[in-house]
């Protein structure tokens, strides 16, 4: 059992933390250096947490649980116009990021209006590459009800956010509905607004748990963090990628931020200690996001073994 945690501390001696994680058999997911401070997102074996806590105390850093670490969440707005951005969509995305997830903002091409809004195949497929999605709708109950067709075809859990109080049974295709978010024209800073953001995080957490539960019924051949570690070792070019997170973790695979045409084969050919290659236990395909590589690890029922 790996615990997702976030370490915040000084750059000085922070490599002691990364070395400790390696020794304990944990994984470093992301490292962000901002001037003299560093933020490390990690997965640590549950039984070794005291060792990391002691090290954090010695370095005078801060260790927090990051419940959403290792997941990618889409935050979808009806358009990218001033009516929907930056508030509250950016507040939601930033808040999700602070809890350890990688959040991507997606503005739909034709998401506006009650009667004419629509979502195309590409947008649906792009959103389906994430682990969960948060839709930010407005203040009119009528519009929230009538925009259901935008997310009806999605296969990932959908968290719908909006202003008014809605009944759960009125939104059968949403995993959960979070009220009091709606359209606002200022930054979320009041206690009630921050409280609503906390509700979104809790809802996203429950959505991810439901995905985890369904994966555990037919477990993956290998865990995404392990696949990430192997790719990082054997395709060293990925460390030169300019993306802030060169390998993004999903619950059922990875997104590698390298061009598919150039590196697709190299990624598929990556070999595990047990002798199998990544191409044998996972689908390696082009991602809808730019020309990145998408890896979807196959379940045990398809491969017949665990590495």
């Amino acid at each position: 059992m790996l615990d997702p945690v976030m370490f915040t501390g000084g750059v000085y001696k922070h490599d002691l933390v990364t070395e400790l994680i390696e020794d304990l058999g944990g994984y470093l997911l992301q490292k962000n250096v901002t001037q003299s401070e560093v933020i490390l997102l990690m997965l640590v074996p549950h039984e070794d947490m005291p060792a990391l806590e002691a090290m954090t105390k010695e370095l005078k850093g801060k260790l927090e649980r990051a419940p959403l670490a290792g997941t990618e969440i889409a935050v979808v707005t009806p358009t990218l116009a001033i009516h929907h951005l930056p508030h509250p969509a950016c507040d939601v995305a930033e808040y999700i990021r602070r809890h350890g997830a990688k959040s991507n903002m997606i503005g739909m091409g034709r998401g506006v209006a009650r009667e004419i809004s629509q979502m195309d195949e590409f947008e649906t497929a792009l959103i389906n590459e994430h682990d969960a999605v948060v839709f930010t709708f407005g203040n009119f109950a009528d519009c929230i009800l009538k925009k259901e067709h935008l997310y009806r075809t999605l296969t990932v859990p959908v968290i719908v956010t909006g202003g008014p109080e809605m009944k759960k049974e009125d939104l059968p295709y949403a995993f959960e509905y979070v009220k009091n978010v709606g359209r606002i024209a200022h930054r979320s800073r009041k206690a009630t607004e921050i409280g609503s953001l906390d509700n979104i995080i809790a809802a996203v957490g429950r959505a991810l748990d439901s995905v985890r539960a369904s994966i555990s019924k037919d477990p993956l051949t290998t865990t995404p963090p392990r696949a990430m570690e192997v790719v990082r070792e054997q395709v060293p070019d990925v460390t030169q990628s300019l993306s802030p997170l060169p390998i993004a973790l999903n619950l059922n695979g990875l997104r590698i931020k390298l061009p598919y045409e150039e590196y697709g084969e190299a990624v598929a050919g990556v070999e595990f200690d047990e002798g199998v290659t990544l191409g044998e236990i996972a689908k390696v395909m082009p991602s809808r996001m730019k020309n990145y590589i998408l890896v979807r690890i196959l379940p045990v029922s398809e491969t017949g073994f665990v590495v």
Binding site: F140, A141, D142, G182, I184
Partner: peptide, 16 residues
């Protein structure tokens, strides 16, 4: 029929 919307739009209009 949109009591919540009316209240929120008041805030939005003031903000803008």
């Amino acid at each position: 029929g949109e009591g919540y919307g009316a209240e929120k739009y008041r805030e939005i209009i003031m903000d803008i």
